[in-house]
Nucleic acid binder design. Structure first.
Lengths: 223, 223
DNA sequence: GCAATCCTTACGGGTTACCGTAACACTACT
DNA sequence: AGTAGTGTTACGGTAACCCGTAAGGATTGC
């Protein structure tokens, strides 16, 4: 089991919930550190390594509110990305409200996150399971996002699609989007292709028109 | 100070943060009740009144995850609305991630919420202040949403506008929206009026077209 | 009571979106 | 080389949106 843990969450109250779980796993409070800012968390990490007593485990949220103070790392994702450069093997558990499969898939595949626990009613139970699993070198995903990695959910939504939908949500016309794509060397760029892609997306998301599509994709947090 | 408190939040971990605040205010744990579901919270409320020992204070979140079990009240807002019918004077503190001024304004004006505290770094401190203020019959708003009630932010966005934008986001055509309004006795209902209102909204939100408008209003949490 | 104003509704013309069809290019497989 | 499949681009027709104008109804103020 882990000995030295860093919890990163801007909610002090959320932290106390995590603490209880760690108590239940017999991890001593004196070896549990907390941070409310991502920059601070990164510093604590580096410091610990320099002191020869690195952390065993990182448990972090994803979203952090903007504060008065300027920060380099403004999200859990940025923190994870930064840490993975120096500590590719460090066990990381994400503990977040977000339950978007797209997000989970990305964090696990791109950033080698070891577990993803959704905050919710079952959070404490699942967080405990996650910690135990990770300490046994296993991966853990919350029930809610279980099938984030199954291939059948891979609806092949490309970066192009996301970019296209974003441009739409900015209020651009199809020919303006075409011009934009031409200017930025994004292919395909013809109005016709843009129409076709949008048509596919509308079918995929069961949307009746462009507005509906944008609304749905925004609900899913894709744009 | 309050004696009997009900905390409604689907995150058990969030609850424990609130508990600490209540500890600091010398509110006895045996008089603190928790609920993870809105329906359950409503029942507890009614039960307490029937038993002749009603709650002094309600602290509730706004968003609750869907669960397997079917529920009547699926949001904190619905809970508050339902409770206000029977207990118009009950002190209510909202404790939520949401920091949209529109939402705060609505809850305070429409549902007579007594305090609104945003979850975040300062949450514990502010929650304490909120409880103290409410116990002194004062209103409290988090720093973050201080100016939710200032008139200058009132851009005269009516319920009609919201409803209209919502229908748009559902992918409906203008004449379908017209039909819908006619069926539901919402006035005005002509396509021409709908066009006009949308035009106003586009100007107000600096949106280039309907899609852009829906995207912006979704960003603001208005729909 | 009357006028000014606002709101609702209707209509027409220009623009954009939506949809089917089709030509052309590129790839992969035989 | 041939063929099937996929992706990009182009075009035309219909429908929906966008915008200005204008008439009729409701409201307000004098």
């Amino acid at each position: 089991m882990f000995k030295k843990v860093l919890i990163v969450d801007d909610h002090a109250s959320a932290n106390s919930g995590v603490l209880e779980v760690l108590d239940g796993l017999k991890i001593e409070r004196e070896h549990i550190y907390k941070s409310q800012y991502c920059d601070d968390a990164q510093l604590k990490m580096k410091r610990a390594v320099l002191d020869g007593e690195p952390f065993d485990l990182l448990i972090t949220d994803l979203s952090f509110r903007d504060d008065h103070r300027p920060e380099k790392l403004t999200s859990g994702e940025a923190l994870i990305k930064a840490l993975r450069v120096d500590y590719p093997e460090m066990p990381i558990i994400v503990f977040s409200m977000v339950d978007l499969l797209q997000k989970v898939r990305m964090l696990v595949n791109e950033h080698q996150v070891n577990a993803y626990v959704c905050k919710g009613r079952e959070a404490s139970k699942e967080l405990k399971q996650a910690i135990e699993a990770v300490s046994n070198k296993q991966r853990f995903l919350s029930q809610r996002v279980q099938n984030a990695l199954s291939t059948k959910n891979n609806l092949e939504i490309t970066d192009f699609d996301i970019e296209l939908a974003k441009q739409l949500s900015f209020g651009k016309l199809q020919n303006q989007i075409s011009d934009y794509f031409k200017d930025n060397d994004i292919s395909p760029s013809s109005v016709s292709s843009i129409e076709k892609r949008l048509n596919k997306l509308r079918i995929q998301f069961k949307a009746d028109n462009a507005t509906h599509l944008v609304a749905k994709m925004k609900d899913l947090g894709l744009i």
